[in-house]
Design a protein around this nucleic acid. Structure first.
Lengths: 331, 331
DNA sequence: CAAGTCATGGCAACCGATTGCCATCGCCGG
DNA sequence: CCGGCGATGGCAATCGGTTGCCATGACTTG
């Protein structure tokens, strides 16, 4: 690999001039610069990003920390984030932390010195740990609010409201909520919004769980729901909802005939499962993209910007897992 | 951030000694080393990976290039790869190239100087381009064979054979294959193995397509299949198979009653779609893990190892999308 | 006791870029 | 004709580790 020294020698100029020909366009004579670039091109010169990063700190690397890469929730987020990063000439480092707070710390420890900024997808770390992190590197948090730290969140309240309204319009009066992890900020939001919406519409809501935010977790909820008197269920997320539907099917409870089910997030899979899942669609790609853009914005301006969390709209996608309440529950 | 110079000053030794205390355990007096480590610990010293990487080239970074992060095919591969990387104290850089050869080149160009090695998930690049790449950095190719370059592949031939045998045992005599992208190495393998297996069992196979390896691609295949005389279809991959099933459902062709469908890969979604998909399960996590391990092995030994591609077994997972051939096709 | 070996630590070059500061030169206005 | 300014290019320090080589001193061995 040729270096600026090689190019400089070939051009008969100093290395610093070569460097400036690339990074300080106006700083060097136009003709000289053109000649240098020409020669560099011919020699196949590429700047070594490590060498550049050492004195400047500009690695052009951003980290996206996700709790579980195999969770379809992240697919579109990753893609959106990567797109925004690429557009800004950054490379995205996706770190999977396997739902473990310790793995998360280790992954961050490893990646932090390399990256210029961090996007924390639904982190399992404590607020204070995140704040410590945010002092080391510009940070944006996804789907969680920490005062003082920029965050991008889905408008879950609105989504939950839509879901409850939808169920109410189908004459459900008795709704269940399948709770996710206690530590989940989104879970709290969703539950609260549901309760409020239910109160407005004069419905009854019950909380079940917590359950693991996985297919298995949803499956475990099935007997609980089957034994309850709710005619509709809103699940913490799509994975749980799908797991629940499969569990209910195994118990011979039909969806949506006997029980209506609504999920959250609209992940890949919500559409292909059977019955296709009615769900509150989170703007996943936009979430990832906007998070990275916010991060980059915060990195370029010296002043910590954006005090308020950015709220991205959620919409209800009605599919086949919700239906008008049956006259009576099956025995 | 304290540096080795700070630690050295605090200990009254030379920076080189501090460096060796960490990287050359035996090279420095045990007591001195212990003292240095102690002081370093107290000062919160962390080696700067950039500074270390500059002279040594050891970035502890590996790249995994995937054609599309949102393709569920990659989820487990990514996880397996990341696990193997983490175990070896490496960090995995996942690059999404959006199914575009040019984006792939650009992403590689950006990442290559940073990483010590590359795993190419189903690459869209030409063989020669890959060979050029492989000269720059140790490379392992996934699901594709290039002589001279280590590769890890699924035993598609065996999988395809199993699929055909399964269909034969269900009395299907007339089988269709939904082809994937022309450029796909796996597509060629699967089709060839199917033909051979069909010949052995005295079945008839027809090739349809190519179709895009997506849900949409599968949907587009539905009318073609409906109009054909095959009673069973093997699709290029699960995404196509699921798309096909949805398309057939829309045309009122029932699966598996009218047509049996088999996919490839056993992605997330194969299990939750309806009917649950019978598919040739690729050992996805193992594939990713083994690819990284092969890469690391190749990096440590100076000699290019492993001439033969590693063949990982594929198994048929029988679910609900295949059934005994009906007496007659619906009109 | 002399010569050789080993353990230990320091010096300084090096990786490849960036950048503050200085030198040179041409040109301009006074 | 002189002082000053802008344009241009070079020098050398710097980022933070790594490592080849050398110096020192202790210990072993014949």
């Amino acid at each position: 690999m040729p270096t600026i020294y090689d190019v400089a020698a070939a051009c008969g100029v100093a290395p610093s001039t070569v460097s400036r020909a690339f990074s300080r366009p106006g700083r060097v004579n136009a003709e000289t610069a053109a000649r240098i670039r020409q020669v560099a091109e011919e020699m196949g010169y590429r700047a070594n990003p490590l060498a550049r990063a050492l004195p400047t700190g500009k690695t052009s690397l951003l980290a996206l920390v996700v709790s579980d890469v195999t969770n379809p929730f992240y697919f579109e987020i990753i893609r959106g984030a990567e797109q925004a990063a690429t557009e800004a000439d950054y490379t995205l480092l996706v770190a999977d932390v396997h739902e473990s707070a310790t793995a998360e710390r280790k992954a961050l420890e490893r990646a932090l010195p390399l990256v210029e900024g961090v996007v924390l997808g639904t982190s399992r770390m404590s607020d204070s740990a995140i704040r410590v992190m945010a002092q080391q590197r510009p940070t944006v948090v996804l789907n969680r609010v920490l005062t003082g730290i920029p965050s991008v969140i889905t408008d879950n309240a609105r989504g939950a409201r839509r879901a409850v309204e939808h169920l109410a319009s189908l004459e459900h009066r008795n709704i269940g909520y399948l709770a996710g992890p206690e530590a989940s900020w989104a879970d709290g939001m969703r539950w609260r919004a549901m309760r409020e919406a239910a109160e407005m519409l004069d419905l009854r809501v019950q909380r079940f769980g917590p359950f693991a935010p996985t297919l298995t977790g949803g499956g475990e909820a099935a007997p609980v729901i089957a034994a309850s008197n709710v005619t509709a269920v809103v699940a913490y997320n799509d994975l749980v909802a799908i797991g629940l539907m499969r569990g209910l099917a195994a118990l011979d409870v039909r969806v949506p005939r006997d029980v209506s089910v609504v999920g959250f997030d609209n992940i890949f899979g919500a559409e292909i499962c059977s019955p296709a899942l009615t769900t509150v669609a989170a703007p996943l790609a936009a979430l990832g993209k906007y998070a990275v853009q916010t991060l980059l914005a915060g990195m370029s301006s010296r002043t910590p910007p954006q005090v308020r969390p950015a709220l991205l709209p959620a919409e209800l996608v009605v599919r086949d897992s919700t239906a008008r309440r049956a006259r009576r529950r099956r025995s």
